[in-house]
Design a protein around this nucleic acid. Sequence first.
RNA 1: CGGGGCGUGGCGCAGUCUGGUAGCGCACCUGCUUUGGGAGCAGGGAGUCGGAGGUUCAAAUCCUCUCGCCCCGACCA
Length: 568
Amino acid sequence: MRYSHALINTVRETPSEAEVISHRLMLRAGMIHKVAAGIYAYLPLALRSITKISAIVREEMVAAGAQELLMPAVQPAELWQQSGRWDKYGRELLRMHDRHDREFCLGPTHEEVITDIVRAQIRSWRQLPVNLFQIQAKFRDEIRPRFGLMRGREFIMKDGYSFDRDDAGAAATYERMHAAYTRIFERCGLRFRPVEADSGAIGGAFSHEFMVLADSGEDAILSCDTCDYAANQEKATARAPEATPPAANAPAPEAVATPDKKAVDEVAAFLHREPTDFIKTLLYRAGEQTVAALVRGDREVNEIKLAHALGADNLALASDGEVEAATGAPCGFAGPVGLAGDVAVWVDREVAAMATAVTGANHADTHLAGVQPGRDFATDNVADLINADDGDPCPRCAGTLHLSRGIEVGHIFKLGTKYSAAMGATFLNAEGAETPAVMGCYGIGIGRTMAASIEQNHDDNGIVWPVPIAPFTVEIILIRETDAASLEVAAAMERELTAAGHEPLVDDRKERPGVKFNDGDLLGLPYCVTVGPRGLKEGKVEIKARATGERVEVAVEQAVGWLTERCA
RNA sequence: CGGGGCGUGGCGCAGUCUGGUAGCGCACCUGCUUUGGGAGCAGGGAGUCGGAGGUUCAAAUCCUCUCGCCCCGACCA
């Protein structure tokens, strides 16, 4: 490919809308073009990379026994009504009407359609298992799209769905997908980690997210420094604390004045105690019920865990007015002792293990010291309710958990029979009984994987592509595009490299060398060959490795061989 | 949806407070000189100032409405 004929328009100045580095660099390198909020066109450079990522995904999916198909982006409301999600999905689902006023939506995911297909195609246990996937644009009307391709409304996704005869089969398929995903992200040259994830409303322990490790990631993950335990902070559980036995015959709680001190840190400083000596009481509304969640003063409530513990669908922090109604005190002085009887008290494991603590007194400007869980308030409902944090003990071994950030590029989970049962995707098993297929689903954000790679691999000068997903593998810079000898060498090299399976981009633009070098670094192709009169005088070209900055002078006739050896 | 900010040549911005014939840098086009890490000089093209309505002799600037975009938050298979 000749740069002078390629649609690659780099810009020196960073467009002001870009927050994260991958978005900035993709705009600067002329890879994407925004069409509307969260909706992008993939320009040729970006599409080349996306095509490569897709090819890796296809190969590994097929190798793992999956078959590719393609479903429509537009889906009829009836299917979503059958699964029950038409009413549940909310405004993230973009709905529309056709000319006959029938309702449709743009597919944010394809469980309904795939289940519809399979129920029409599958009759017998002999046809199972079947594992199907597609690579296609999805649309989710995100409340706030951001970070360019990282969180768009329209995005390219590989979504796969498996149907098995029984749980054991589904578990085996799940493991195969886990292994395939690991190979996919390894082949893409990414540093990543599979982590245990919350499976949302579906429940069950079978859910893993594949996280590309990057400080700019939107997800917090905890991983053990000793064993291979790693989990999304939404899900991560630290080892349960040992109970500290309370002193016998300890005095009853004592009220202490804490005028105008509300936040735990303020009260702790005022009383010369540590936040870890406190119990923080947060009030929530779960439907009609008011719930008090008790966590140690330095901890954060994990609302997902709390919702699971309660079996609640929707959970929201209580308003100031609701707090006053439940505690009889202004917000900031809530505590478990003497709460209104209709408030359900849920106690974090760590709090239940405390010997004594300071809590709010349910009275303005007052706290209680010397409160004993179990003696001064009931500990009937104990659960893990907090976010595990950096330094907590690992639940599986003697190691320590560490907090880091990641970008979710893949998510696999076992669905069970939720959709197959609701939509009648059943088959006759070996005993002749009608049985719903056991499903799993498996997603990879293709565009997000590309963005995550840039997020993880860049420097001050631009992108640093890993060879397997680079738009081109080699850039050939012509120092003097008017020099006949240089042109001849570049043309020959382009031919030979192409024949050897490389993808060269020849910068033959009428630009000064400095411009070409800087654009070369910005585009970030793995190798850059500089062809100019000065080197050719000695029959040499210079090759630079983008990732390491290593430069070598190589004889013209050895350059292709040198590159082939390095790219293997 | 709540809070904040921004819409002025392709991109980045000034001008708006205090109304008076639209400007700068980059990019683009032409020519000459240059050419191993973002060249110089000269010339040139390009903007209904997001849109609609209003005030005024006069509106990018003041008023009203509206649309879009960005940031923070709530939300998220």
